[in-house]
């Protein structure tokens, strides 16, 4: 099913996720309905166990929901097979994980190039885009290094480069600054906000980081798997404008 005439990148309707932990039913998400528009820079916040990461996993098709519906870039995820979801993620979503999750045996350049290779982007274009994006994230000159020879901040920059290089409709960042020192974290947040403003790429964060919250245009607060608050931050919006 396609959602027509809609500027939403993400649309959810009564999303519920229930799982069992040692035989006990846990309601990770309890009927979340919301929409994320194109070009947003939004943070989902809440205490540990509030369902932030689960929500990100559900809307990206990394996890299956128990009830409800999720549309991503106009496509209903529950109608897709595992293979279709793989292809869809490859073409429409960029991921930034807390633990970087780079492929350890590939160099910086190869990690960034990998998704475009899956997409079948021609070699010349791949190389151009990789070098362009590495320059954007300030990692020119690091192309041939393996992730193990980079600092945490540098690795997360590679992860950002990997997430944006294929120009996805949505970048999902799960606690992207959790493992970084304050200076590096601020630099990374600023860089992502610049990317958002320059390219109009949609960013959705799951975070505890106040610095991200301060810079997010929209803040969605989750508590016990429910949206407790959903607000536009005037200050951030003003800064963006």
């Amino acid at each position: 099913m396609n959602v027509q005439n809609n500027n939403s990148v993400i649309l959810t309707e009564n999303v519920t996720k229930e799982y069992h932990d040692n035989g006990v039913a846990v309601h990770a998400l309890n009927g979340i309905s919301m929409s994320i528009e194109r070009g947003e820079f939004t943070a989902i916040v809440g205490p540990s166990g509030s369902g932030k990461t689960t929500f990100l996993n559900i809307i990206s098709g990394l996890d299956r929901l128990t009830q409800g519906k999720t549309w991503l870039a106009g496509k209903l995820l529950s109608e897709m097979s595992g293979r279709e979801l793989s292809d869809f993620r490859r073409d429409h979503i960029g991921f930034i994980f807390q633990a970087y999750n780079l492929i350890p045996v590939l160099t910086v350049e190869e990690n960034v190039e990998y998704i475009m290779l899956l997409q079948g982007v021609p070699k010349t274009e791949r190389r151009e885009r990789v070098h362009g994006v590495l320059e954007q994230v300030g990692l020119e000159g690091y192309a041939d290094r393996l992730p193990t020879r980079l600092s945490g901040g540098q690795q997360q920059r590679v992860a950002v480069a990997r997430a944006i290089v294929s120009r996805p409709a949505l970048v999902l960042a799960d606690e992207p600054t959790a493992n970084l020192d304050s200076h590096t974290a601020v630099g990374l947040i600023e860089m992502m906000r610049d990317l958002n403003q320059e390219s109009g790429m949609t960013f959705l964060f799951s975070t505890h980081d106040v610095r991200i919250m301060e810079r997010a245009r929209r803040l969605i607060v989750l508590e016990d798997g429910r949206i407790a608050r959903d607000e536009i931050q005037a200050a951030a919006a003003g800064r963006q404008a």
Binding site: R83, F97, L118
Partner: peptide, 16 residues
């Protein structure tokens, strides 16, 4: 397992 999870997350097909 984690690496395969990442590969799957970023769009690597099961057959790959």
């Amino acid at each position: 397992t984690r690496e395969f999870g990442v590969l799957r997350a970023v769009g690597t097909a099961p057959s790959q």
